[in-house]
Amino acid sequence: MYKIFYKTELCIGKGALKQLSTYKNEHVLVVADPFLKTSGQLDTILANLDASNDVVVFTDIVPDPPIETVVAGIQSAGGRPISIVLSIGGGSAIDAAKAMYYFAKKQGIFSQAILIAIPTTSGTGSEVTDFSIITDAEKGTKYPLVSREILPDVAVLDADLVMSLPANITADTGMDVLTHAFEAYVSTNATDFSDALAEKAIKLVFEYLPKAYKNGQDVEAREKMHVASTLAGMAFNTASLGLNHGIAHAAGAKFHIPHGRLNSILMPHIIQYNANVINRGKQPIHKETAARYQDIAKLLGYSASNPALGVRQLVEAVKKLQKQLELPTSLREYGIASDDLAQYKEEIAEAALKDKCTATNPRIPTSLEVLKILENAF
């Protein structure tokens, strides 16, 4: 037996921001990316709120939000009886708002509040997940906060908010979507429900991410990628993730590579490791996982006549997509020095093994195997 829980009310499509006009006489804590404030986009979004609401805005958000940001955000409410925590932005803003919401409720603050998420990137799926990633800057470690309590009550998906997203961020966040879908599909917790969500997300990414990257004003591509992000988020919120994210969390805390870009660099190596189709030695192919990757390759139109070929064709498809998006394909190409990798690789490997995402990876990795993946990705 397994259980599936979908809590978030989704408001999707053009004009979805009008949902904000339904809230009246509320005390609202807005947690938003600072760029939205400087660009004026935040004012445009908040103009949908009724004038009867008491609104306080917190925009001191940085990538990989540290614990200190969470504390500062709670304090910014100034003792108000917050009834809505409204998060607007990319994964960092939504993750920070989730953590504020969680810890404030634990302290008896914001006790009656609901959580609303408005993503302005098409990548993290954070608007429909019970995950939040917070950084301990002093230790250089990322901590996943996982609790059903931080699932947003409402998510507003309005593609108008991502039309001006720069091409490089479109690529990075889009590859994060793909990683979410791939990992959910081969997760040890995968179900028919998560499979359906992941399969649709994968098809949308391969068809529409290159279009959104090439032409940011392609409305259809933007809308499809926004939906793909949420579908993949729903998939991994049910099935969880795997080693790709486990390593990305650990290495990202050390090297500060954009999360989606790091996931992309690792992706071909993780696929090959999980399926065990190269340098196998005496170990046989990991048939079940390879067959899952074979299914994805077939979904994308490849012949994939056997599992090993399916895995190779899927890796080729990923590399072709990376080329279309002009993404780096190695840590070295991104700019990581060999000395830096040597300094941190042991620590990264140990942190990756402890990461909660790694627990549902289809192969149970050893420290030496993670080190080998890092070396291959370099």
Score class of each variant (00 low, 15 high):
E199N: 03
Q313D: 01
M267Q: 15
V311E: 03
T188R: 15
H249Y: 09
S194C: 08
F255H: 14
L314S: 00
P258D: 12
G246W: 05
A250N: 05
Y213A: 00
G246Y: 07
M225E: 00
P210Q: 13
Q294E: 11
H259C: 07
H249N: 09
L314N: 00
A196D: 02
M225V: 05
S229H: 10
G216E: 00
H269S: 13
V311Y: 06
R312L: 12
S240Q: 09
N263P: 00
H249K: 06
H226Y: 03
P284V: 13
K254L: 03
A304G: 13
G281A: 10
T289G: 01
A221T: 12
I285F: 09
H286Y: 06
P258I: 04
R280E: 01
A291Y: 07
T188L: 15
A304E: 09
V318R: 06
K319W: 10
I271D: 05
S187I: 09
T230A: 13
N189Q: 00
K200Y: 00
Y273G: 14
Q294K: 13
S303K: 14
V315P: 03
V311N: 04
L314D: 02
K254Y: 13
I296N: 07
L300V: 00
E199F: 05
K214S: 15
K214C: 07
K254V: 04
P210C: 01
R280C: 08
G242H: 11
